[in-house]
Amino acid sequence: MKAEYVNPFLEAVINILGEFGIEGIKRGNIFKKDRFYVSMDITSVIGLIGDIRGNISYSLSQETAKNIVSAMMMGMHIEQMDDMARSAIGELANMITGKAAVLLEKKGVDVDITAPSVIFGKDIYMIISSVEAICVELNTPFGIMEVGIGLEI
């Protein structure tokens, strides 16, 4: 059903993290959820409007986030997830989703992406679309990134 729309997002994660020197990303578990429980500390959500409508969520633990932000900032040590670090995570989500939008455009699917919202908190129960979202665990060298793809097509 949605595999052709899911892959651009996963490819985009691998591509964008690769630009920061983060390699060796592997797909882990995939599951379908309408309401999902996020045990990670940070989630960034971006909306899509256009030929397809939906939301994409990227969830990470603080540790994973700090390491990824450090890679984005050329190895700068990140002590805590302050404003600057949260902004960087929002920007990461923006870059990944923007890249996915470019990949979708090549398939003739035009979408516009919205600004990211970054949610910082624990034990989050979240719904990102009115249809079931596909949640993919990506294993990075710094820990797991969970990507939630909720598309209404």
Partner: peptide, 14 residues
């Protein structure tokens, strides 16, 4: 998008 959590903080950078 809707969510509930434990002391969640939301930012919309910049």
């Amino acid at each position: 998008v809707v969510f509930t959590g434990n002391k969640a903080i939301i930012s919309i950078p910049k």
